[in-house]
Design a protein around this nucleic acid. Structure first.
Length: 867
DNA sequence: ACCTGTGGCGAAACAC
DNA sequence: GTGTTTCGCCAC
């Protein structure tokens, strides 16, 4: 129990008096020394030290639970490649560049053209001399291969290190600690790949990444609160005008600590608002408090924040500068750019806001459980806890309230990495191993960079010349199919139009990881598509002019194929089977992380930002996907199965005949080389007749709602709730007879909502549309409603920018909308809301063969005209 | 510095 | 008035 805040105050006072005359502000600079005698470490990060050719590795020592630093001084230097000759280069400006060190002739395999070539390596003293913004060596060359200048991540010049893996220091060298491939488990996995020699070879490198244990890393989560004179405005970190009034730290060992800045006329508050075992310390001097904070930041190998890049660490850095700290006494530095990252000198900073913002993480690792990327929303979705809800602005809280509030945020941040047996930390480590990226990078960058780094690593391992983007396009060409949607680059998947109505007993079959399977079995890879062997030209991709090489398997095909197989054939089934809890948990994490990578592996090929962008590969993938689903539907129908619906890789079958389904699966496996699996079975499905739009009740009573407006985030809460009740009634339906009974209930419900709406008994909050601004209001081509509302809000000098969520209601008169904050209940345009109610309910009613107006027994003027 | 893809629906604004 | 475009959100 925090015995008494008053006591802590007195303590601080005594301390303050004692130190008053003393020399203040002792240096807080972290000591970074290369360590030679460490135990088993996990490699967390690689960065450049600034000295010529020296890279700094951050290693966390598992036994001593400390962080070590390792200077990589193997003599390797950063370089880039060119096909120019040494003589040519000697006459160029390159030799007079201050960072230039020398030339070396090297042989590389030109993977695009399938032959070995000789190139010149230009060696430099500093990666920035090659790839830096201005006047870099690369810019002096007409043709430079830039990929090999990367110094960050795992690849230090010529050495291949894998972040997230365990290393030992022996005789001044880093030696990887690996799981033995001769072990029983590894042997069993390798057996699965019997006959697939390329994949088996690859697996020898990859299997240790999946089987190596994931250590628990000591870490701290921090949060700060800043005084603000205007409660609506978050203080600007670059200006750092106001004092940091609270700091909280929660570490992985359970330590909980709060620093509070002593201010005039602040109430102490009730100590019992704080829970047990908390260290509280008051400071009279903000400078002193920052010094203590900086000391703490140097004590942990990993520091977690939520939005620390933008706010917490950024603010601390600028506040410290403002208070007179010299740069070398602040263990924080910001990278340059529009979205800067805050890096710590002696630790790895993980900004969980960035990690949770990653769409792949959101969708595939957490199944879209959270939608808004805010501390509160994610905490509620993943941990079932909330922030402390404040009644007053932070600046007006008592010490006890402030401490509790700040501490809760730090606690939530720590819990994000601890729940489900450290799931998030484990995922991060796995992603580091797969992408070969440092912890800082992997948590900040998107999936396309992960896949790029993964593939680059494999290229370097094989001494392949990594092609430039423009070379790939020049050799392999652009997309040729036409997209259904204007503005898209190529044709995508097939979606069937379902018949409107209710269908009992529906089986859903789907192809397991369809696109990765296609990439594997059809040998899709940028370097082997449209190859120059005349004899391969007949190996065409259906409905495209592209063909695929028959002589050589492409790198991405092997790699993606191997990852697909090992997930589908080992980690997924085994994660359900294994009894050992530690192993099970690792398997689940591996399975999840592979899913994330596999799901994105096709998309990046069609992304012009991706460095191995290859439109022919992307459109061939979808073309084969269309071919496969079309053929399967034809086969199903020829077997007498009734196909109701299908989307991309799924097929809905009415009144399925088990033996025929078995036959269909066998056929797909043999003829199309894809796994067709039983996904789920619906007691009934109600189709509205629209694509991507239906409700289904599974045999276990669970309800699936797909695409219906009642479910969408921008739908006002009163409709969402009504819709949920609506679906709740439906889910109780067991037989066709039950429908008749439920219709009465549905009618009552609709009527109730309608009356409540007409009588204006819903609150503004319940009526609010919630829409995100995808860009700044000034950048829109069209002034849609949420933009209009945002502009009104801006007039009241609220913080409004890209990413802000705007809540507005529809009102009578111009401009038709108002932000909830500024609206009154009597201005609401009820007719507009009735129309929304109509579309929401009609999607379900159509399926049931019911009519909205009939159910209500009323006809508004607008609905009359719509008939 | 940041960035996986296409297909589809509904609402409203814009263009004619 | 009508047809087209823009935007947000969702399915896969």
């Amino acid at each position: 129990m925090v015995s008494n805040l008053e006591e802590y105050l007195e303590e601080a006072e005594a301390e303050y008096e004692a130190e008053y005359e003393e020399e203040l502000y002792i240096a807080g600079k972290p000591e970074l020394k290369p360590s030679r005698n460490t135990g088993t470490c996990i490699l967390l990060s690689v960065s450049y030290s600034g000295e010529a050719g020296r890279a700094l590795l951050k290693l966390y020592d598992l036994e001593k639970r400390v962080m070590h630093f390792w200077y990589d001084d193997t003599g390797h230097r950063p370089y880039c490649l060119t096909d120019m000759s040494v003589e040519e280069l000697k006459r160029s400006k390159v030799v007079s560049h201050p960072g230039f060190l020398g030339f070396e002739r090297v042989k590389k395999f030109d993977v695009l053209r399938g032959r070995e070539i000789e190139m010149t390596k230009i060696i430099a003293s500093d990666p920035l001399a090659i790839g830096g913004k201005k006047g870099a060596i690369r810019d002096l060359l007409p043709r430079a291969w830039e990929a090999d200048i990367k110094y960050h991540n795992c690849y230090i010049f010529d050495r291949q290190l894998v972040p997230g893996m365990l290393y030992k220091v022996e005789d001044g060298k880093l030696v990887r600690v690996d799981v033995e491939l001769s072990g029983e488990e590894a042997q069993e996995v390798l057996k699965i790949f019997e006959g697939q020699e390329a994949a088996k070879e690859l697996l020898k490198d990859w299997l240790p990444l999946f089987l190596a244990p994931v250590p628990d890393i000591r870490r701290a989560a921090i949060d700060i609160e800043v005084y603000s004179p205007d409660p609506d405005k978050l203080p600007n970190p670059r200006e750092a005008l106001y004092p940091i009034i609270a700091f909280a730290l929660v570490d992985s060992d359970g330590r909980r600590l709060v620093f509070l800045l002593r201010r005039d006329s602040v109430e102490t508050g009730q100590s019992d608002e704080l829970s047990d075992n908390i260290e509280v310390r008051f400071f009279y001097d903000e400078y002193k408090m920052l010094e203590e904070i900086f000391k703490l930041l140097n004590e942990y190998p990993v520091v977690l924040t939520f939005n620390g890049d933008n706010f917490d660490l950024n603010y601390m850095l600028h506040r410290a500068l403002k208070l007179g700290f010299s740069r070398d006494k602040i263990p924080i530095s910001m990278t340059v750019g529009e979205h800067p990252a805050a890096l710590l000198t002696a630790a790895v900073h993980v900004d969980l806001y960035k990690f949770f913002h990653n769409r792949s993480i959101q969708g595939y690792a957490f199944g879209s459980k959270y939608r808004d990327v805010t501390l509160d929303a994610i905490a509620e979705a993943l941990l079932s806890i909330r922030k402390i809800q404040l009644m007053a602005p932070v600046s007006q809280l008592s010490y006890a309230q402030l401490a509790a509030y700040c501490l809760r945020d730090a606690e939530i941040t720590m819990q994000f990495t601890k729940f489900d047996d450290n799931l998030v930390m484990k995922l991060i480590i796995l992603f580091m191993r797969i992408s070969k990226m440092s912890m800082e990078d992997v948590t900040r960058q998107g999936i396309s960079n992960w896949i790029r780094n993964m593939l680059y690593f494999e290229h370097r391992k094989r001494n392949y010349l990594i092609p430039r983007k423009d070379e790939i396009i020049a050799v392999k060409g652009q997309a040729v199919t036409e997209a259904k949607i204007k503005g898209k680059k190529y044709m995508g998947a097939i979606v069937l139009k379902p018949p409107a109505g209710v269908y009992f007993d529906v089986a859903v079959l789907d192809f397991t990881s369809l696109y990765p399977s296609i990439v594997k079995t059809r040998n899709l890879s940028y370097e082997v598509i449209n190859c120059d062997h005349p004899e391969c030209r007949s190996n065409v991709i259906p409905s495209t002019p592209h063909w695929v090489c028959t002589k050589r398997q492409g790198l991405t095909s092997i790699l993606i194929g191997m990852l697909r197989d090992i997930r589908a054939l080992w980690f997924k089934p085994m994660s359900k089977k294994v009894k050992d809890q530690v192993k099970k948990s690792l398997y689940e994490v591996v399975e999840k992380s592979l899913k994330v990578i596999l799901n994105a592996s096709y998309g990046v090929m069609g992304s012009s930002n991706f460095s191995l962008y290859c439109p022919p590969v992307a459109e061939s993938t979808t073309a084969i996907g269309r071919y496969i689903i079309t053929k399967t539907i034809e086969k199903a129908e020829s077997l007498g199965l009734r196909v109701l619906y299908g989307d991309t890789d799924s097929i809905f079958i009415h009144n399925p005949d088990e033996s025929k389904i078995g036959e269909l699966m066998k056929w797909a496996e043999e003829e199309l080389k894809v796994d067709l699996d039983y996904d789920k079975r619906y007691r009934f499905v109600a189709f509205s007749g629209l694509k991507k739009n239906y409700v289904g009740v599974l045999v276990n009573g669970e309800v699936d709602i797909k695409g219906l407006v009642g479910k969408k985030r921008n739908t006002p809460p009163f409709l969402k709730e009504a819709f949920l009740n609506f679906v709740g009634i439906l889910s109780k339906v067991d037989t066709p007879e039950d429908f008749e009974k439920s219709k009465v209930l549905l009618r009552d419900l609709a009527k109730k909502v309608y009356d409540k709406l007409r009588e204006r008994r819903y609150s503004l909050d319940e009526l609010a549309f919630t829409v995100m601004l995808s860009k700044h209001p000034s950048e829109y081509a069209v002034a849609s409603q949420h933009v209009k509302a945002a502009k009104l809000l801006m007039a009241y000098k609220k913080n409004v920018d890209a990413g802000s969520i705007i809540r507005y209601v529809k009102v009578k008169g111009e401009p038709g909308v108002k932000p909830v904050q500024l609206a009154r209940i009597d201005e609401v345009d009820v007719d507009k809301y009735v129309e929304h109610m109509r579309t929401t309910f009609e999607q379900v009613l159509t399926a049931l063969g019911l009519d909205f107006d009939e159910i209500l027994g009323v006809r508004s003027i607008t609905s009359f005209f719509n008939r």
